[in-house]
Design a binder for these strands. Structure first.
Lengths: 189, 189
DNA sequence: GTAGTTAGTGATTGAGTACTAACTTACTGT
DNA sequence: ACAGTAAGTTAGTACTCAATCACTAACTAC
């Protein structure tokens, strides 16, 4: 048994929760599964967080923060086409190394409707605010071009869906995605 | 009490299940909720379908079929830019009239990973096959242009996500989407 | 009208799950 | 050494939910 400070434990709970919620979504993930992954007893989670919802929320918010940081760091000091490529490359790395981050984001989006139905309007509010922050983060380096930004986000969502469906890398559905990353933003002739 | 043939009942179960699963996903939806919406007792669902999974699968497949038909009907006899606009218009109508169809599709994509973990590989196979059929359905009218097709699908997925998050129509995140629908495919300058 | 079939219900069960309460084990400062 | 505190566990509760079983009500063919 490895003892940790509560704050450190909370961190590893967030990581474990991200992986588990990414696969099963809010309802398809038991707190026991999270606890197992952390290597801690299930009831102890409720000492670290007030409830399951709070764990989901913490994981969701962390996820958005991470993605915002990924893009803002990638685009730092660049703009226009260069920024676009840098951010696209950064996202490609996330796809390969942390697909659970993409999946968790999708789960977060879909959890909004369910939360809304249960009377929780704050959750949707928080998710939309996070989206807007993400949007603005890519908007500026892309020269504040709404069309470019929207297309970039659209490709991101397409990638998320393809990853979710489990299309293996190299499958023909990815062709158009890579192609676009190569040609997009190039001066027309 | 209104009696129906088993086949008719199955149809209304699929419709009800689509609406319920769209909001809560597979795990977040109880068979009782579906039964209530149909107006039938919960155990009776298991006479019409072998289990909850079968209901989800039926709803998911219906959903994809409907979307494929939506696009193929919209693009019938058209090609290139005209087909693009016709399909975009058709999708706009779906957003307004049957948002649950979009949400159900997203839920289907995300259910793949969960099914995979439970050892069910056929589900993912079926979902990917459906996606490919949908892809091919829009690919041909768009002049078999991979880039155009990918962009079209990407915008579709972005729309699905924005709808899921509950961004109201008129919110600034939609600007870029509409703008693209107006200008995309137009000859430059 | 009655036998056979099809549509549908009520009661129940067994497994899983979020969360609580009471207790134990390890570290820290004095 | 030992008191206090922070980390963590075991046992248990109240509840939800998919699925089964035994039964009833309505339609149909003869």
């Amino acid at each position: 048994m490895v003892r940790m400070s509560a704050e450190e434990r909370r961190e590893s709970v967030i990581r474990a929760a991200t992986a588990e919620f990414a696969r099963g979504g809010y309802y398809g993930t038991s707190t026991e599964a999270i606890a197992k992954r952390v290597g801690v007893s299930q009831p102890y989670l409720f000492r670290l967080f007030p409830g399951k919802k709070a764990i989901f929320l913490a994981a969701a918010e962390r996820c958005i923060e991470d993605t915002i940081r990924t893009f803002s760091e990638a685009a730092e000091g660049l703009e226009g086409e260069e920024a676009l490529h840098a951010m696209a490359d950064a996202y490609t790395r996330v796809i390969a190394e942390q697909p659970e981050r993409l999946m968790m984001q999708m789960q977060t989006y879909l959890a909004v409707a369910a939360a809304e139905q249960e009377g929780d309007h704050e959750f949707g509010e928080a998710v939309r605010a996070g989206w807007m922050r993400l949007w603005d983060t890519v908007h500026l380096p892309l020269g504040a071009d709404i069309g470019e930004t929207t297309t970039f986000m659209a490709y991101g969502m397409l990638i998320n869906c393809l990853v979710a469906m489990g299309f293996p890398p190299g499958h023909r559905v990815w062709e158009g995605v890579y192609e676009s990353a190569r040609t997009k933003g190039r001066p027309e002739h």
